[in-house]
Write a protein that binds this DNA or RNA. Structure first.
Length: 437
RNA sequence: GCCGCGGUAGUAUAGCCUGGCCUAGUAUGCAGGCCUGUCGAGCCUGUGACCCGGGUUCAAAUCCCGGCCGCGGCGCCA
């Protein structure tokens, strides 16, 4: 085992060389005097050939293998035109490390044969499919690319508490938690804490962590627990500073995925990862003008819903040829209390969403940092300032202008890879019904 | 939370509308056998299922009600 190499290296080894590989039996074909085992590990597949002539005992053992048994094989790399990577591994030693017991409940080698719900019930088997593993390697790349980008740009990575005393934005969409003799809640966003750190003087902060929403959504793009990549930056002049940062981070993440995985993504998910040439910013009111004559024009208060967003997405794609764009300047009624209002028109705000392939992946804004305005806005939203005293205190002792944004990692993964359901982009998705595995 | 559609072997499905010809069909898996450098291998045999509870009826997989679960739409949002 010390000499073990991954299948992708084994395939590239020069003919005649001896290698050791180990992994799962992906497929098995016993054909007369020869046994073909497609062996799978994290990095790929290799065809192992076990010949009866060479060792009858080894052949017997091999022909009794079952799909998903775990084996280690030592053998010689031999050219074979029709085989995976153009080589066979002709076995000299075979060790069975683990046997499967029952018939498999799902088809790990062919995810399409099983419904998503069943696949999630058997997630550890489902993830053995190279295609499903790839989703999470891409997600890893997306998250780390952003992490590196933000750190390179002066953001300090922080970790804030997910146990909170009050809902951050009012409303009932929080999960209560029994906290000794009190009721606590799971944080629906690190919003207030990341602002706290900017006000504390961190200047720029970044956090990747879970966020919880107790909404009984039944859609392909909602989870009750999702990974939120949040930033907050101080001393901005306007929301454009935040947008530019988010845009660069997103493009960086996409380009890193493209350079590392574009070939595999094309092969296993049939998706081309293309980088948009430019990311446009369009005011909501202007976006609405694009769909004015359609059957679904924006309402007069610009509190748009899913159908408008969909229509805007198509209109922008036609007009500007991009599926990644910002919609800016949302109306005050549609944004949370801490959003800064526009100077020229208090009905609108210094806010934005980033839309990718028709899905909202980022939401952000400049925050209101002036104490009295903030109290005013809180009351306008029907929140009781006394409930948020810890938050409001922060604005009494020197709070710089600041703003930030939050990105849904699973949503970005889903849109990047063209997945139809966000659950595919979460290792262990939680929705209103599912709490296991 | 509301609305729509659905729940049949391990998995994926047919049957349900028009109740009895269903001893529930097919594919795949699994078990056994044959054959063959396979590559979605092939051929033969076997195996195995009507979500739960109530109701209508001489008779329910099929019709009705409730529950649970699944998929999607809306609200809402990342």
């Amino acid at each position: 085992m010390k000499d073990r190499i991954y299948t992708n290296s084994a395939i590239k080894a020069p003919p005649g060389s001896k290698v050791v590989v180990a992994g799962w039996v992906h497929r098995l074909r016993v054909v007369g005097k020869i046994c073909f085992v497609i062996l799978r590990d994290r990095e790929g597949l290799i065809q192992v050939v076990i010949k009866r002539d060479k060792s009858p005992q080894m052949f017997d053992e091999a022909s009794q293998l079952k799909q998903e048994d775990v084996i280690a094989v030592k053998g010689e790399i031999v050219p074979s035109k029709a085989s995976i990577g153009g080589v066979d591994l002709v076995a000299e030693e075979l060790v069975v490390l683990s046997k499967t017991i029952a018939p498999l409940p799902i088809f790990p080698d062919d995810w399409e044969k099983t419904s998503l719900a069943k696949r999630l019930d058997w997630r550890f088997l489902d993830l053995r499919s190279p295609r499903n593993l790839l989703i999470f390697r891409v997600q890893d790349k997306l998250e780390n690319a952003m992490r590196h980008f933000y750190r390179e740009n002066g953001f300090i990575e922080i970790h804030t508490s997910k146990l909170v005393a009050e809902a951050t934005e009012g409303g009932a969409e929080v999960f209560p938690v029994i906290y000794f003799d009190k009721t606590a809640f799971l944080a629906q966003s690190p919003q207030l804490y990341k602002q706290m750190m900017v006000i504390a003087g961190f200047e720029r902060v970044f956090e990747s962590g879970p966020a919880y929403r107790a909404e009984k959504h039944h859609t392909p793009r909602h989870l009750t627990e999702y990974q939120s990549i949040d930033i907050e930056m101080g001393f901005i002049e306007g929301p454009e500073d935040v947008m530019d940062m988010v845009e660069r981070a997103t493009l960086r993440a996409l380009s890193e995925v493209a350079s590392s995985y574009s070939k595999l993504v094309k092969e296993l998910l049939d998706v081309d990862i293309t980088l948009p040439k430019e990311v446009i910013k369009i005011k909501l009111t202007d976006a609405c003008r694009l769909i004015e004559g359609t059957p679904t024009p924006c309402p007069s208060n610009y509190d748009i819903s899913t159908e408008h967003e969909k229509a805007i997405g198509e209109a922008v794609a036609n007009e500007y040829g991009t599926d990644l764009f910002f919609i800016t300047d949302y109306p005050w009624i549609a944004r949370p209390f801490y959003t800064m209002k526009s100077d020229d028109n208090p009905e609108f705000t210094r806010s934005f969403d980033l839309i990718y392939k028709g899905v909202e992946i980022v939401s952000g804004s400049q925050r209101e940092h002036r104490y009295s305005k903030l109290v005013e806005q809180m009351m306008e939203k029907g929140l009781r300032p006394e409930k948020f005293s810890f938050y409001l205190e922060m604005f009494k002792y020197g709070a710089p202008p600041h703003g930030g944004a939050g990105l849904g990692l699973e949503r970005l993964t889903m849109t990047t890879l063209g997945l139809k359901n966000i659950r595919e982009a979460k290792l262990l998705p939680r929705d209103p019904e599912r709490l296991t595995p």
